[in-house]
Design a protein around this nucleic acid. Structure first.
Lengths: 200, 200
DNA sequence: AATAGATTCTGACTGCACTCAGTTATGAGT
DNA sequence: ACTCATAACTGAGTGCAGTCAGAATCTATT
């Protein structure tokens, strides 16, 4: 039952512990105050590490947000995939994938929007970032799968259509103009657009 | 021939002159070095005004970029509208509008991407910002007009379709992943997506 | 158990966007 | 001409993300 290699030295364990403390501290503070109102200093203090150390684990403040949110996003995708499977209509099925993501994104509006910003404009070389992009890719695959299931007659590439859906979703969630909208309003906004996209 | 009101006091003139100097200084420095490598201090110095004064004319560094780029963007739209009028195919006509915008946006990649970022995530209350959003709205109208001209049989809302086109355009230009792509590659990427969107 | 080499940690420091209390210019009223 | 109120300007100051030279800690080797 034991894993292949026990030789996990003190070094590795310390590193893991620190990372855990950072995630815990960041999670708590970000949820409580929102990214705008939390300083990296506060997070470092709460995680009980030096200022500089924090930046060994997350290259920028934005990466810190990815570190915390990626898991939630992945979970939302999981949920949506399951929901979509039980729904007959294409549009409704696609929106079943969309909704949990919007909900997840809107738990704290500032954090959600900043997360999206980081995704598009951040450095894809950073591991947390590429992880985020991979979840987007999975989202597109899930949507493409739903589209494929419904066999849109000679529809263009399902993958491309899925990509367009994520683009729509992205901008609806990210735009400052939509910052004050409720989850339902955002979903409705997305629905209108995806409805047109899929109408044929 | 004279305008209605001459009473343009020294105050107004001074203000206008300063704004002009700011635009000139910012234009030059941003074009030369890119927004990442220019400090607001440099711009203030070059415009020969105090540090604080700069922020009376542009609330943030990002606003400064909008201030400079909006005119170029508007010009690109103008160009595209003209081009589109002479083109028969829908897809090609829409892309005729897209191309000059992409070209304009890519004169300096960093500046272009930051401009887009500012548009989506900036404060829409600021005048330069709402001006930018208005140009986007005009872009969507132009695209909708092209779509209308071609009478897509029972196509969903032309305005909504236009909005989707701008979303596609936006993300293709903004994504860090696409930062290294050439203008032609970006346009091709957009074409693929818009092609699927309009296929029916 | 001693030494050396590598890795990880740290907080004082830097650079920069943005602020604000104090100053100066403008114009209206007398 | 001389107030006075208001608008516009200014640069020293503030806060914060991110850096880096040196300290501390770990592991391998003998």
């Amino acid at each position: 039952m034991s894993l292949a290699s026990q030789p996990v030295g003190r070094r590795e364990r310390n590193k893991q512990q620190k990372l855990d403390r950072i995630v815990a501290a960041a999670s708590e503070l970000l949820a409580e105050h929102g990214i705008e109102d939390v300083t990296t200093q506060q997070i470092a203090d709460k995680a009980d590490i030096g200022t500089g150390t924090l930046f060994l684990y997350a290259k920028t403040k934005g990466e810190l947000l990815l570190l915390v949110q990626n898991a939630h996003y992945a979970e939302a995708l999981q949920q949506g995939r399951a929901d979509a499977a039980t729904i007959p209509g294409v549009l409704d099925a696609v929106l079943a994938i969309v909704r949990p993501i919007v909900e997840c994104n809107r738990v704290q509006v500032d954090n959600g929007r900043t997360y999206l910003r980081e995704m598009v404009f951040g450095d894809p070389e950073e591991p947390r970032h590429s992880e985020a992009l991979s979840i987007v890719a999975q989202t597109e695959e899930a949507i493409a799968a739903v589209l494929g299931r419904h066999e849109l007659a000679g529809a263009g590439d399902a993958a491309t259509t899925a990509r367009i859906v994520t683009a729509i979703m992205f901008l609806s969630m990210a735009a400052t103009v939509n910052a004050a909208l409720s989850i339902d309003e955002i979903v409705r906004d997305i629905r209108t657009q995806v409805g047109v996209l899929l109408s044929r």
